[in-house]
Simulated scan of single mutants.
Amino acid sequence: MDKIKVNNMEFYGYHGVFKEENKLGQRFRVNALLELDLSQSAQSDNVEDSINYADVYQLCKEIVEGEPCNLVEAVAEKIASGMLEQFEKLQQCTIEVVKPDPPIPGHYNSVAIEITRGRD
């Protein structure tokens, strides 16, 4: 299966279980791995035969910057479901949502959720 990767899309959202997260917000990064057959678009050289990266970005932006969720898992699920709904050529997607600065004590680079969803 061929793959499109859209990496390190950065947004500002209000997701989290702590009141401060819902009030102050924080940065989120999203990585999307989209699996589909790209042979037709490779031959035609037409974006209509592929998935437009700008549309992928916009869908992620609307979800991350939209209605707050308590869990990053829910954000990832909304993105994956939206991808499968919007892009009929898409067979499977892996979505990673990264919280670079979660309000928890300790030394770490980030926390992240990664889910994979596909067509039945």
Results as ranks from 00 to 15, higher is better:
Gln58Asn: 14
Leu38Ile: 05
Val6Asn: 00
Glu67Arg: 13
Gln86Asn: 14
Glu65His: 11
Thr116Val: 08
Lys61Ser: 04
Phe18Thr: 12
Glu10Leu: 10
Asp2Tyr: 10
Cys93Arg: 00
Arg29Leu: 13
Ser50Glu: 02
Val56Asn: 00
Thr94Arg: 09
Leu84Ile: 06
Arg117His: 07
Glu35Met: 13
Gly16Phe: 03
Ser50Pro: 03
Ser44Ile: 09
Glu62Met: 08
Gly13Leu: 02
Gln91Lys: 06
Glu73Trp: 05
Glu10Ser: 12
Ile95Trp: 06
Gln40Thr: 14
Gln26Tyr: 09
Leu71His: 12
Glu85Asp: 14
Glu62His: 11
Gly25Asn: 00
Glu21Lys: 06
Lys5Phe: 14
Asn31Ala: 11
Gly66Tyr: 04
Lys89Met: 10
Val17Cys: 14
Gly106Asp: 07
Leu59Val: 04
Met9Trp: 03
Ile51Pro: 02
Asn109Leu: 12
Gly66Pro: 00
Gln26Ala: 08
Lys5Leu: 15
Glu77His: 13
Ile79Lys: 04
Met83Cys: 12
Leu90Val: 05
Met83Tyr: 04
Pro68Gly: 14
Gly16Tyr: 03
Glu62Thr: 15
Phe87Gly: 02
Lys19Glu: 12
Lys3Asp: 10
Gln43Tyr: 14
Gly106Pro: 04
Arg117Asp: 05
Val75His: 04
Pro102Arg: 05
Asn70Phe: 13
Ile51Lys: 01
Leu38Met: 12
Leu71Trp: 07
Lys5Ile: 14
